[in-house]
Design a binder for these strands. Structure first.
Length: 463
RNA sequence: GGCGCCGUACCCAAGUGGUAAGGGAGAGGUCUGCAAAACCUUUAUUCAGCGGUUCGAAUCCGCUCGGCGCCUCCA
């Protein structure tokens, strides 16, 4: 498979260091509030990547950190009158609940920053020994002028960087304003840790270097995040890690583009700021949102609109209707050789699209083409048992990547509903269409849609 | 000021030199007691605009217009 590597600015053949084992790190959430839909676009892209690696048979060790100490978590916890731990636990729980709604697979390891202070201290000690870090007013800074590769990932020339406007008071004492903080001196009323490098708390970049190397080794295959993390976060991670170890930190850098809402950057002030919760409360389906978020290539901006969620819902419905037909269509007396041909052809099309830098649009086209081809057969001739299995297996393969379809047999157990379906059938046979339509409308209100086919009545849930 | 991305139908979107995939929505039709589903037909002589290279350009080059991102809070 080929994948775009931010480090080289090119698409490259993916070849992990250890042949069959991929080690991957993703920058996880900072748990200071509910994650928004833009955050989840990134996590859905990473979910697609991880699922494709698994599909291709790699053993995967995926680490995603949780940042549970930083300026925002501290400020918000204080405002909420909670301890830092109580506050961040609340939002970490909410985050993982949202992840389940979006069917994001759990990474193998989910380390929390506050559980890894010792590893971070060790990393700072190494950087101090190598004279890549210096102490200033109780804080410790990274000396970027001592790291020659600084700016390679982001293609920024350190000497060209403008100095930001929001430099904190204590940072005026840095040797170079562009140096970044590794360890922050304690402030009044803020949490801090007593450590060998002095009291304080970690800077933002430090945790990712310390935790990724702890769980994946000093050199690993993939590091993921949103494009906004390229600079400074990932640039600084490289400086910290490679500065400390002298070895290549990461082989492939995977960055996903941002999500816009109605063509604009999402911002609370613009009134276009959505959390997943907002959308679910408005009655949108979390699976349709997953579908929408995964259906645009990760390197392209995704313009999120409520109309788009509606379109995604419609597209999913087409696939669900097909699966219903595939399960319930007439039993054919013998196998149809075209079924296996179609399945193999469309699967190949799907796989080569995904191998091509996760070309999800082309992969989805293969899914819909398969649906179209197989639908015609199921509709006109029915399917033999073996062919039915093949069709369902094909879509299960597609779904191992997409995870937007359900395959468990859905049965109605409610005796009253079954009774009504029965009664409607009798009414239709007696040409009492008033009564039949009345029952159909009644069931629709309960979320069950009835469809009359030449092979009898068929039903599906509408919610 | 520096670096980078994007512009394909009503909407989303693939395609990076060989004559415009796929999805949604709309219109007409077939089937149906009516629906629904499905199927058929239909919606870009054209890819922001203008020039150039080429037998051939949405694809390559140049310019123009429009939108977006990063440059120490950020997914």
């Amino acid at each position: 498979m080929r994948i775009f590597n931010t480090l080289t600015g090119q698409e490259e053949e993916f070849q992990p260091f250890q042949n069959h084992h991929v080690r991957m790190y993703t920058c996880g959430p900072t748990v200071y509030n509910f994650a928004h839909i833009g955050n989840f676009r990134t996590f859905v892209c990473q979910d697609l990547l991880r699922r494709w690696l698994l599909y291709r048979g790699y053993r995967l060790t995926h680490v995603m950190n949780v940042t549970d100490v930083d300026d925002k978590t501290i400020t918000n916890a204080k405002a909420a009158g909670l301890s830092l731990k109580d506050y961040t636990t609340r939002y970490a729980d909410a985050f993982f609940e949202d992840c389940r709604h979006l069917r994001l697979q759990q990474p193998e390891v989910i380390p929390y920053a506050t559980d890894h202070i010792e590893e971070m201290v060790q990393l700072v000690e190494k950087l101090m020994e190598k004279n890549l870090a210096y102490r200033q007013n109780g804080s410790i800074y990274y000396r970027i002028s001592a790291f020659t590769n600084y700016g390679r990932l982001s293609r920024l020339d350190p000497s060209q960087l403008q100095i930001g406007h929001s430099i904190e008071a204590d940072e005026y004492s840095k040797d170079n304003p562009r140096d970044f903080v590794l360890w922050k001196a304690p402030k009044d009323g803020e949490p801090y840790w007593e450590t060998r490098i002095g009291p304080g708390r970690p800077g933002w970049h430090l945790e990712c270097s310390a935790m990724s190397m702890k769980y994946l080794g000093e050199t690993f295959d993939l590091h993921c995040g949103g494009v906004d993390l390229i600079f400074p976060h990932h640039e600084n991670e490289i400086a910290q890690s490679e500065g400390a170890t002298g070895r290549t930190f990461v082989k492939y850098w995977f960055h996903s583009e941002h999500l816009l809402v109605n063509g604009e950057r999402m911002a609370k002030s613009k009134g276009n700021f959505y959390t997943l919760r907002d959308l679910l409360e408005k009655g949108f389906d979390s699976i349709a949102i997953r579908y929408l978020l995964l259906s645009t290539h990760y390197q392209k901006p995704l313009n999120f609109t409520l109309e788009g969620v509606g379109q995604a819902t419609g597209a999913l419905q087409t696939l669900k209707n097909f699966l219903l037909l595939a399960r319930t269509c007439r039993q054919a007396p013998s196998d149809n050789p075209r079924v296996v041909d179609i399945a193999e052809h469309r699967l190949r099309q799907f796989e080569s699209a995904m191998d091509d830098n996760l070309n999800i649009s082309a992969a989805l086209a293969a899914v819909y083409d398969a649906r179209y081809d197989l639908n015609a057969i199921a509709e006109s001739q029915g399917l033999s048992s073996a062919d039915r299995e093949k069709v369902l297996l094909l879509f299960q393969k597609f779904n191992s990547l997409l995870d937007v379809l359900d395959f468990e047999a859905d049965v109605i157990t409610d005796a009253e509903v079954l009774q009504l379906i029965e009664e409607r059938g009798a009414a239709r046979r007696n040409h009492d269409f008033m009564r039949a339509d009345e029952i159909r409308a009644q069931l629709l209100q309960r979320g069950i849609a009835l469809e009359d086919t030449r092979d009898g009545v068929r039903w599906k849930r509408t919610r």
